[in-house]
Nucleic acid binder design. Structure first.
Lengths: 357, 357
DNA sequence: TTGTAAGCGTTATCAA
DNA sequence: TTGATAACGCTTACAA
């Protein structure tokens, strides 16, 4: 514990007085501009003694750069967004940017707010994952006075950098895998069709079936919601209606966990009787029993790509808007693999040392 | 798509010119200070037409408030920190504060950096979860020019607000529970003893055993690391050495998942043969099979408490440093409960709609 | 009710 | 090499 608690932080004026030089000289020294040795010494000494720290706000006002970037998404608790955040954070940090986090709680008005507040210039740029893209979004994007990177679909011609997943190919990977395992009665448990992911995944399922020459059978499709219990209920109904189903494509991992619950209760073995594939490849997939095969839509990669696009813009890049599409990946685990893996499963990507007291 | 893309954002000067009034009047109108109707109208009209948005940086410089609060912890991917973040975020947001996120990657120097940068005044306050508290921390805390709330242990007499968990009571809850279930050979799978949580939980285990009149038996303790595979290995060794163990207290949820893996492979039923308790009550606990009983150390509550303490400070509270201790809670699930729950498990607290495209 | 002007803490221009 | 001085965009006395 030193002692020097200062009533009100020192400024370059304080230093200038103390060192007996002008504030201009202080600024020069602090910024490493050519200055006489003697002056440098005096200024540094004064700054040290006073415990001077540069005021970031004043700097920003002058330089018109805040060295902050905002990341806005619906909910940090969602593993997909979290995976993005975990990639975005270090990329920005290494480039000297701070990360301002906005959780919009799936309220569209909040998203518009964030876009609007971009005008306040408290950040140099914004990375956003919109729930869906409304007219209001497009207007604000068009008028944005700072670079924006959108993770998700934007209409053709929107003048922003854009990073996309490819859920269509993702679903296809899963269906191809199941088909190769000999499954022919592949059900789909989806979330609401009026959501972006629900619609996309449903259509992709139908298309992928066609790709392997399987007929599309409405009876094999059950709509629920993107939650575990709801997913379980949907599976229960499907089992009732189509007892000979031998595989389930689930629209996300939570639904797939619900499927495991219900299959177990119904005495169906996974994967022997029914194979199960989830989507998003969250932490939960590796934690469940049997561990869950899951289609990764590359949240982490999308986050990284978005951060990198942003940095390029911030470093002066002002070319045409760019589009990056991230390839999906099927992670095969016990729920489709045949014999469940035992003993020592591989670390999940997010295994971390706990450090709560 | 409107059209008015402005070369360089409008300021109150632009508005003043356009409305034919002084910048002072513009400022007054914008801040809702008493002004003549006619002036209000002219200013508002001009502001609207120009698409004016207040510059947050300039405001901050003048008002000496940034309306930003920083949250610093080792790793956003860690569920315990994430749980805190999820509580902190809305509390700050509702009070009109933005959240600046710092992930220190468990590098102590980075923590010191964050503390140092507090002097730059880019935030009004800092909530921090230090890995451990060094002399350097204490010096910086002492000299901090903005309010700081520490989540974790700080030495007596440190002049900052402090929110703590109570892992000792937490472990006791688990041991009491296991004892009440008739278990008498209760093993402990811990992480390294030179970590804060490892040491605390190990000591708490020993003490809790005493509390129920069980002897402390070194053979029942196995040290590994806070990861799943390591935890599994530790359990395997313990089983080898002490085949009659009938319960396992695991120092975190990942270790407990490793325990489930190994017990299953060894043909031991959970909980009939061996009951298992994890710690931290992460999402994984509800996802595993059997679902995992776990001791919650109240990460969410600690986050909320910290955010609230911070807000009080920001709203002018300048009393003595306060200490909040959050009570732990035992969440009983299938791994200790007797018959594993089937069918429709309750939603976990973080079940959320997925919204990746 | 309004305008002038000072200042928040920097950076940067221009003479000296 | 250095010191006045003018911004940066805003709020706020103080005068008018």
């Amino acid at each position: 514990m030193k002692g020097t608690t200062l009533a009100d932080g020192p400024t370059i004026n304080t230093i200038a007085e103390r060192a007996g030089v002008s504030i201009a000289s202080v600024s020069r020294v602090l910024n490493g501009l050519p200055t006489r040795q003697e002056t440098v010494r005096k200024v540094m000494a004064a700054a040290d003694e006073l415990g001077y720290v540069r005021n970031a706000v004043a700097r920003s006002l002058k330089s018109r750069r805040t060295h902050q970037v905002a990341f806005a998404m619906a909910d940090v608790g969602n593993p997909a967004y979290l995976a993005m955040l975990r990639q975005i954070q270090p990329v920005l940090k290494d480039a000297g940017y701070r990360l301002v986090l906005h959780s919009t709680d799936a309220v569209v008005a909040d998203e518009i707010d964030v876009l609007h507040s971009l005008g306040e210039r408290y950040v140099d740029g914004l990375i956003m994952v919109p729930l869906r893209v409304t007219e209001a979004h497009l207007e604000m994007l068009d008028a944005a006075r700072a670079p924006v990177v959108i993770i998700g679909q934007v209409p053709e011609g929107t003048r922003v950098d854009n990073v996309r997943a490819d859920s269509r190919t993702g679903v296809k990977l899963a269906i191809d895998h199941l088909h190769a395992l000999g499954r022919r009665r592949i059900g789909m448990i989806n979330g609401p069709l009026d959501t972006v992911p629900g619609a996309a995944r449903g259509a992709a399922y139908r298309e992928a079936l066609g790709g392997v020459g399987l007929p599309y059978d409405e009876d094999l499709v059950q709509i629920g919601d993107f939650y575990r219990a709801e997913g379980g209920r949907a599976v229960a109904e499907l089992l009732d209606r189509v007892p000979d189903v031998d595989a389930l494509m689930c629209a996300n991992d939570l639904i797939a966990l619900g499927a495991l619950d219900v299959l177990r209760a119904a005495g169906r073995r996974v994967p022997e009787d029914v194979a199960v594939v989830g989507m998003d490849d969250t932490d939960l997939a590796a934690a469940s029993w049997p561990s869950l095969s899951s289609v990764s839509l590359g949240s982490a990669e999308r986050g990284r790509a978005a951060a990198e696009l942003m940095l390029e813009r911030l470093q002066g890049g002002d070319g045409e808007p760019r589009l990056v599409t991230v390839a999906p990946r099927l992670v095969v685990r016990a729920s489709t693999a045949g014999a469940p893996v035992a003993d020592f499963p591989a670390e999940s990507r997010t295994d971390r040392k706990e450090s709560a007291e």
